[in-house]
Design a protein around this nucleic acid. Sequence first.
RNA 1: GGAGAGUUGGCAGAGCGGUCGAUUGCGGCAGUCUUGAAAACUGUUGACUGUAACAGGUCCUGGGGUUCGAAUCCCUAACUCUCCGCCA
Length: 422
Amino acid sequence: MLQVSVLRNNTADTKKRLAVKHFDQPGLVDEIIALDDERKRLQAEFDGTQAKVNAASKEIGKLMAQGKKEEAELIKTDVANWKAALEPLKEKMTVVEKQLLDTLVILPNLPSTLVPEGRTPEENVVVREGGVKPVLAQGSVPHWDLIKQYGLVDFETGAKITGSGFPLYKGKGARLQRALVQYFLDYNTAAGYTEYLPPFMVNEASAFATGQLPDKEGQMYHATADNFYLIPTAEVPVTNIYRDTILKMEELPIKMTAYSPCFRREAGSFGKDVRGLNRVHQFEKVEIIQITEPEKSYEVLDEMVLHVEKLLQALQLPYRILLLCGGDMGFASAVTYDFEVFSAAQERWLEVSSVSNFENFQTHRMKCRYKDADGKMQFAHSLNGSSLALPRIVACLLENNQTAEGIVLPEVLHRYFGAGTI
RNA sequence: GGAGAGUUGGCAGAGCGGUCGAUUGCGGCAGUCUUGAAAACUGUUGACUGUAACAGGUCCUGGGGUUCGAAUCCCUAACUCUCCGCCA
């Protein structure tokens, strides 16, 4: 959530930056400022009257103590009148405040100056590529065939149990999931991230704080009887650890990592986009999250990008890093780097990680602050990224490493998987 | 699922319906002392809103209510703890 003070002090610039994100209601900025003016006016009026009531109540207390009951009664009539005036004011304030918040919440985060212009994924900028695209032997097949051939995932039974898009991993397929999760977590904790295992459902306040609500209501599974949401990413519960907190400077940066299943409704696409493991409703992911001082968040962003990049290198997968253009970025993000790996049999890039700096957009919603060197309260910055989302990594590992003798796993996974090949 | 107890400032922990935004301790900050540090002593130390600056307003888990006046009384929700039951 953006701060009204920012809109007020940099109105023109704010609109310019919203335009980079292709936000099509720049008029809302002026609307918000006007609502805030109205809010202040009402508040001042309300406070003035309330002050009179408070003073009179104290006076009554004194008079009662002195036994001057009649004089006290006289003042009570005044108080009654003021209080009557207070009620409609309070009602107006509630309406204006709600309207202000409802409008403010519609504004996406402002893109950082790093963000390139553009509307579609094609306009994202390739920052760099790494790894080597393998040359597959004749007769190589996509992962959905390999999965069947080696009996790793049973989509049909998953669909019977739940519905399509809920994979049932089995045997070595299940073991590979466990191996990857464990390897990723070990890699992250070795880099100083503290491991968490969070709840997989969150309440409304948490979903609001990280920006899933109200923006992405329909994309989450909703357990209505208890009003809980199944998490679309560990980012939601883990970032919310620091909701409503005041941090000490020496506690920063906070580095956290967590494994969780991720649940996404994602209605819409069909065809080869969703074939096999390309897109599913439930998948495994390991996430990294940092909370930092504002001055250091971009340094940390680079550090996180490098961290994920090294992980892909260790897995020996061909990858590229994209800097997302304004139109393709998420609602809450100020800058986002996407990581894609090359799926050799499908001959296409698959997104496996997304590393973002949210600046204070989430922390403002969450009220996560810290005291800076001068003892001033400031909103911290939050960042997160996947390290990594499993299904597409698995798809690439299978496709890129298929041989006549089986699927050859990268060195780093051997001890986790308990074997070098599938 | 049943019964009881609790929720106060960064933490611990007081608090008669009216000078309580809240005693006190710890922690933090500043100072005295010291070559420096520790200890000791002294002072200081909540957040939000608002103002040019004062002033003013709000906040004692959330939401209602009683009252001229609520941290304090009543109702309600959430959470925590203890005991019982059930259970991987």
